[in-house]
Design a protein around this nucleic acid. Structure first.
Lengths: 338, 338
DNA sequence: CTGTTAGCGCGTTCAC
DNA sequence: GTGAACGCGCTAACAG
């Protein structure tokens, strides 16, 4: 494998000069430049990025650690969509993405220490923020550029992009209430996820506003999987009397819930109304198409990237905390009370 | 940031000794070892992976370049599922995944050169193999460990895992023919994808076997997106007479096709039968659930990882080329001819 | 404009 | 058992 030395020798110049023409870091006479370029071409020379990173302290790589709680990416959750947009956007800044998996909840910090402190990446994006999220404190203390998708309860100032989950759920509830539903179930996220409480708050607030009383039997906390949604829905349908509508905290769970309802012979949008949260791609492609609260996930990925890149470049963020408003997308999974 | 030097100084030993205790590469007296370990803990020292990679010529990272043809990962194609399994499996070998995006068809090779020749990764997985795939020749010539998901027509011996697309489509066709369909459409993949021809072959073969003649009007080549499937289906439904069943080369396209058919007022499984290919997660969750040809994608990801890791370790592959048999999964998107 | 040189942080001989 | 010294390939000062 050719190194910069070989190129220098072939071109009859010093390695410094070669470096300069590669990085355009100093003016080089055209003639010499051409010789260098020619040598580079001849060897099909490619600079060793590892050596380059060691020297320059930059890797051109962003870390994304997949949370253990997500059971990796087996299911079409928002995470796939987010990753898609991050991949797209990071490309624009010539960053690659280093995907690591945390094996378990306890070892949650291991990949961060290895990847981040080991200097394999210039910064990282964290998702799925939790209450008392250890990662945030760690990254702040180590002074590593990072951006979070989601707020947290740690009393720390850190850059994030989040969606107003309370407002989102409130919109969905408003819609269901306007359809005449009064007995509305709620399938929530695991309480360790910080966003779970916002969504629940939106549910309670909408209820309260209409003078409806909060019935704990109608509120279930499920795992963030299709199976989690499926099971939660089954439970909800066994409540007496069962809800006529259900607000669900993620589309993924909503898909499972739809399946559960259909198994019970219910026609979704007629016998039972369902509102999801996320608006993942598939929400528009299932049958019936799912009415849901759209997180502008593509935009979120774009913002996360842009902010992180700014941070990496040492620029100051114009907006350090961004909260986006979600939007109700009406499709066909809801109907009026009968 | 603490380096190995700091640790050595603190422990009152040389950096060589520290290196030995970290890598367990020589016997160190227990007492000294403890001192080193203590110093490591005190500094929360983490070896610099970049320096380590430069020296050892290993990065512990696998490359996956997202093909430009897939329009990244915006849609729930097999790629998401494959990535999920690769992430899971690579974790078992302590490999991270470097995700890069190729910006355009012409610059297809750029990310490979940069990432692979730049020594950022120990090996790579390529997907979406094409006819005359340049990447294969390149990686072979550079002697880089790699494994492909998919065969190619290049007359080269390279390690791959693939699915027998011909047999898969044949199974689907067999099923449709047994339901009494004789006018069966086919939505194929872009012909640049090498697997497109196998699938078409399965279609033609099944037809021929039953003495049915091949009607070019019923065969459409679409982009591998939902929109591609949607458009292809619309075209197919405009053929006179339209097909009563359609064999589609990917689930993603099938989802789009289902939408197209439903828009025309057709009941899928009654008015028109649809068979997909892949069995992505959503195939079981759409309505009606999609009858499809299952690629054992999780297993494929696992095999790809295992083979690549073996290659990286310099071991010989027991099986250098693996072709898996797909399986017909009968759900509800097909019905008998009426 | 071009060459020389000093590290970046670590692993690895090879002495001791 | 332990330490000194070299070099992985490159960038960035600085000198000329």
């Amino acid at each position: 494998m050719a190194t910069i030395k070989d190129v220098a020798k072939r071109a009859g110049v010093s390695i410094g000069t070669v470096s300069h023409v590669i990085n355009n870091t100093a003016a080089v006479r055209n003639e010499t430049k051409d010789r260098v370029l020619k040598a580079i071409k001849e060897f099909d020379y490619q600079p060793n990025s590892v050596a380059r990173s060691l020297r320059s302290r930059r890797t051109g790589t962003i870390s994304l650690v997949l949370p253990a709680i997500e059971r990796s990416m087996d299911e079409p959750s928002y995470l796939s969509d987010l990753l898609a947009s991050i991949v797209d956007e990071s490309k624009r800044y010539n960053f690659d993405i280093l995907l690591s998996a945390s094996s378990s909840e306890e070892e949650e910090m291991t990949p961060y220490k290895r990847v981040v402190k080991g200097k394999m990446v210039d910064g990282c994006i964290i998702t799925c923020t939790k209450r008392n999220d250890k990662r945030i404190a760690y990254l702040l203390s180590e002074n590593i550029p990072f951006v979070a998708f989601g707020r947290s309860n740690v009393g720390l100032d850190f850059p994030y992009v989040d969606v107003d989950g309370e407002a989102g759920v409130y919109q969905g509830m408003h819609y269901l209430l306007d359809l005449g539903h009064t007995r509305i179930g709620f399938i929530g996220l695991p309480s360790e996820l910080f966003c779970s409480e916002h969504r629940l708050k939106g549910y309670r607030f909408a209820l309260k506003e209409r003078g409806l009383k909060f019935d704990p039997a109608l509120v279930i906390e499920g795992k963030t999987t299709q199976t989690g949604g499926y099971r939660s829905m089954k439970k909800l349908l066994n409540v007496d009397p069962p809800p006529t509508a259900v607000m669900i905290s993620s589309d993924l769970m909503a898909f499972g819930a739809m399946k559960a309802a259909q198994e019970e012979g219910l026609i979704i949008g007629r016998d039972i109304s369902i509102v999801g949260f996320d608006d993942v791609q598939m929400a528009n492609n299932c049958h019936p198409p799912l009415t849901t609260i759209r997180q502008p996930i593509y935009k979120i990925g774009v913002l996360l990237c842009q902010m992180l890149v700014q941070l990496i470049r040492g620029e100051k963020l114009s907006e350090r905390q961004i909260i986006l408003l979600p939007e109700l997308i009406v499709r066909e999974s809801c109907g009026p009370i009968r």
